[in-house]
Simulated scan of single mutants.
Amino acid sequence: MAYFEKLKLQIATPKNMKKYFLIIASLFTIALSAQDKQVIKGTPPTQYIEHKVKDGETLGSIGRKYGKTVAQIAKANKIKTSGLLKKGAVLKIPVTAKNLSTQPATNTTSSASGTAIYHKVAKGENLYKISQAYHKVDVKLLREWNGLKNDVVKVGQQLIVGYIKSNDNVSAVKSAPAQEPVIIQQAPVTAEATPVSTAPAKKEEIPAVKEKEPAATTTPVTPVAAPKTIAPEPVAKTAPADEYAYTPQQGDEGYFAIPYAKKEANATQQFRSGDAATFKTISGWSDRKFYVLINDVAPGTIVRITGTNNKSICAKVLSSLVETKGGTGLLLRMSNSAAAALGMSDTRFPVSVTFFE
């Protein structure tokens, strides 16, 4: 009994309490570090890591972080490319030779080549077998990254096998203003600027030219006079039928806010969110007619685009979005005048979109 009392007093001394506190803190730090590690799961060729969605993240921003497209992440998780992401949701991020680098600058978990990816050693594995499973990474690199003096590994040991290639820096370079595509406005857009109109320009009728009639002759031997033609009467050029009485005002949602408000009674509101960029155009700077390129929305649809500053504009869909350099993972491209009206000066920025169909 006296022994246990003595042991209790030894544990309760300030010196021992400090020692046990340091041990507990160390264990907590180790456990937290283990949770932060990106341990690869699955088997080739369907290996993946997991990402926990944070507030404000989109498929586009996550895709850039891990070097994957929106479509690839959506397919791996069986979700729509335009679907909303819930904070705290866990996404599978495919790991392939295209986004797994085997030549980082350093062996830290935040090297210039991306985030470190770990493999958990299974029974019967050795460094050579592991290197073959990860695109034949050099065994010397595996030893260097993990501080190993030889090829001996233990079951359950977590080893760095590569680094995720991030597209953040690449996107920033490719999305520079000099690389922005220049969109030439086609006939439907140009016609809308015409001041008078009751019918679409494409329905403009061109008067037919009357058939040529030979001139009368005096005798059979007289040469036939040159045939006469009657010139068509000039027809006034018409503008599209969707012309509305509108006076541009700084800060409003633009010309297309009028048709957006005139939605059909049985129309269903749709929602999209993601990253946006711009294209160059002369339209919209004075008449505030804004245009947008977006996939899965019918051309001619009027959409409302809202920025992170809660400013919004209404724009007309010209056509689908064609992927260009620096455009990976984009939801849409809007006219540069629309981006200016939204107060967006970055080459790439998050937006939300609503429309009716």
Rank of each mutant, 00 (worst) to 15 (best):
D151I: 05
T108H: 07
Y118L: 00
T106S: 13
V155R: 13
A112Y: 11
K154Y: 06
T115Q: 11
R143E: 13
V152R: 08
K98S: 14
L100G: 00
V153K: 04
S131T: 07
T108S: 11
E125H: 05
W145Y: 15
G114K: 09
G156W: 15
V121G: 01
K140E: 12
T108C: 01
A133H: 06
N126W: 00
N146M: 10
T109Y: 13
T109L: 03
T96M: 10
L142S: 01
L142Q: 02
G124W: 08
I117R: 02
A97R: 15
E144Y: 08
W145E: 06
A97Y: 09
N126E: 08
Y118W: 09
K136S: 14
T106R: 06
D151S: 10
G147A: 13
P104T: 07
N107Q: 06
K123H: 02
A105D: 15
H119A: 04
K149N: 12
N107R: 09
P104N: 06
N107Y: 09
G156V: 10
H119L: 08
G156N: 12
K98T: 14
V153E: 04
G114W: 12
K98A: 12
H135N: 13
S101K: 02
Y118D: 00
G156R: 14
K154I: 04
A97S: 15
K98W: 10
S111R: 05
K149H: 08
H135K: 09
V137A: 07
T102V: 12
N107D: 10
L148F: 11
H135R: 07
A97N: 13
K140V: 07
A116K: 12
G114A: 07
Q103G: 07
Y118K: 01
G114T: 08
S110Y: 15
S110C: 01
S111W: 04
P104K: 03
V95S: 01
A133N: 14
K98F: 11
P104Q: 06
G124M: 07
G124C: 04
A116G: 13
I117H: 02
L100H: 02
K129W: 05
N150I: 07
V152Q: 09
E144F: 04
N107W: 04
E125W: 05
Q157M: 05
Y128P: 05
S111H: 03
T109S: 09
L127D: 04
Q132P: 01
S111K: 04
T96V: 09
G156E: 06
K123E: 11
K136Q: 15
P104L: 01
A122V: 10
E125G: 02
G114L: 07
L127R: 03
S111N: 07
K129N: 14
I117S: 01
H135G: 02
I130E: 08
V152P: 00
S110P: 01
